[in-house]
Write a protein that binds this DNA or RNA. Structure first.
Lengths: 346, 346
DNA sequence: ACCGTCTTATAAATCGATTTACGTAAAACG
DNA sequence: CGTTTTACGTAAATCGATTTATAAGACGGT
């Protein structure tokens, strides 16, 4: 209610009997200041509840102690988990985060990034909504350091953090193969993204190396209701039906789960299921879902580390960091026979 | 890579042959400007990819087109869903959001709010981590409009958005009572928060009015593993055991689900379950979970509306908005007999 | 006592957009 | 035709923190 103007550095300076430059130096630990004076300044600042005006500070220095984050959606726990991880990483280094979502739309992504850049942030962490990341020109025009996460097709002059999708998917497939499964079904929400396609390839490789037939790959979309219809043909033909399913995203996992229920298929008795991304509901579910866990916390920390490195040396080379996933084996997968050994088959 | 200084309003002005004041007026639609001149200015601005420097703008005007959001956690889909809703609401009005999490800790909450306020945001939306909201003094000292969400005990001079917790819980209880359940168990992660206690009261009222025994109320905490041990005594005594459970938060729902599984209890055959908060996994789960859905999107929009109202008239009275929840009836609850009619019993 | 060296504080310039105060030209009016 | 109003531009002041250039002391060495 006290609408009075907030106290300024000038107020502190006057009250402490020094110049604003001195106050600035004390509060920013910038230059040597007489300890006694510093003490007095700090005390006065505390007394007056002085809070620096970031706008003024930023205007002068040109950079804001803020990192901008743009993700495709704030309703997806993978992205918000990542944001949480970044926030933990930047905490304590005095940085704040501004976040924005592109709603999976390139035009919005571009608009949101432009808006973020007008803050002149220290850096930008973005999970692009497509592999091409067409809004990249904005970022290298502005000169702000950028780190891309999770999506991005080609090798570029952009720092990048991701997960080894191929290996993760192989791990899931090998797990099922080890349980004697011969026909696998791969379910993706969409095959637009390179990371999803890499996961497909991982499964394909695993099967190929085991001398098993290639998996069926289906796109199930984002709406749970239609998934049973899409999956039915693959799961019903009694003879040659898939006995193991790998769902490549958490929404695909949800889709498969509800489809199995609607189709009257029991997990894991009729089909085994490996999901992607690991959430609390997966352990509470009946049965608990075997899932590939992406190391969100590491991803967030790594993104911040890479960003800091770019901030420190803007001319330096772009780096890319790739993390491994872990398979959390639970009860949604079961053994249906001895694993086939390659040399016997071949 | 082009580390060259970004283009400034002065650049645009020179190139368009006008003063910076005119550019400012054109771009901010502030004062009448000759249409032809305006067109030229706009074109030059576009050509140069001019982006306003928010720091400078903010320094001059004193206010930033930004709303600060502080929530207890970014790992909880309830809070991130709320943030998503607020973002949708402020989109298009030219506002950005800065977000921060207090990790459920009062000291951190205070620190984060102070940090947010140094941006001199247009307003602050906060989901306090306790009912007392001790960091409130910061906000009314700074003069920034504040809207509290979800938590807050007493009636105060602070605008406030929430859900009718009591009615929501009554709805859940009445649903179970209508299905013939006589002994209900209420599971909360914690009873610290007033909104949770209100939910308890709602259940109690519903049972009292139906002439049924009061519910057992248990705190199950945040760790899934211990829930079975806590719940076992309430669910095992064959004679008088609870047949219906109301879980007051989504984590409590998860806890109950995994406890039921570990205890060998089938849902809904052995126990019926009503959860709180409604997420995608609840419809994919087997069985799909009956749950109380909080209107997150309305909550977000309302918080923004209230904030705007405070921004427009800082002296005005605080308002409070209360929304109703909806019960999504699915398959985790079943009828175990005719509902008891009060007059027959009484 | 004098000069250089070193330390520490200060006044003033600066960042870029907004806004005030004022000027000029065209339009409206009697 | 002279005067007043209106419309639209501009120069300059301003917001608050940082930083540069400079001054003022303190100290040691000769």
């Amino acid at each position: 209610m006290v609408s009075r103007r907030a106290t300024t550095m000038r107020d502190v300076a006057i009250r402490a009997g020094v110049s604003t430059a001195t106050v600035s130096n004390v509060l920013g630990n910038r230059k040597a200041v007489d300890p006694e004076l510093a003490r007095r300044v700090r005390q006065v600042a505390a007394e007056l509840d002085y809070q620096i005006d970031r706008a003024a500070s930023q205007l002068r220095t040109g950079r804001a102690a803020v990192v901008a984050i743009v993700v495709p959606s704030l309703d997806n726990p993978f992205f918000t988990g990542f944001i949480a991880a970044v926030e933990r990483a930047v905490q304590g280094e005095g940085y704040d985060i501004i976040v924005s979502s592109s709603n999976g739309d390139e035009a919005q992504e571009r608009a949101r990034i432009a808006a973020m850049l007008s803050w002149r942030p220290s850096g930008l962490i973005v999970v692009p909504c497509t592999d091409a990341f067409p809004a990249r020109d904005l970022t290298d025009f502005s000169g702000a350091p950028v780190v891309a996460v999770d999506r991005i097709a080609g090798a570029d002059a952009i720092s990048h953090v991701s997960v080894n999708n191929r290996a993760a998917a192989r791990m899931a497939a090998d797990h099922l193969i080890g349980f004697g499964h011969r026909h696998l079904l791969v379910c993706a929400s969409s095959l637009q993204l390179a990371n999803i396609r890499e996961r497909c390839e991982g499964v394909q490789q695993a099967l190929a190396e085991a001398g098993l037939p290639a998996p069926s790959i289906v796109e199930v979309g984002q709406t749970l209701e239609v998934v049973p219809t899409i999956l039915a043909p693959h799961l019903s033909s009694a003879e040659d039906r898939a006995t193991g399913i790998i769902a490549l995203t958490s929404t695909a996992t949800l889709g498969v789960l509800s489809a199995a229920r609607d189709l009257g298929l029991a997990v894991p008795d009729d089909v085994s299921l490996v999901g992607f991304d690991d959430y609390a509901w997966m352990t509470a579910s009946t049965p608990p879902i075997t899932a590939v866990r992406q190391p969100l916390d590491m991803l967030g920390r790594a993104a911040w580390d890479l960003l800091k490195r770019r901030m420190a040396s803007p001319g330096g080379a772009a780096e890319r960091l790739v993390f491994s996933c872990r398979l959390e084996v639970r009860r949604s997968t079961r053994s249906i026979g001895p694993p086939l050994v390659k040399c016997i088959i071949g």
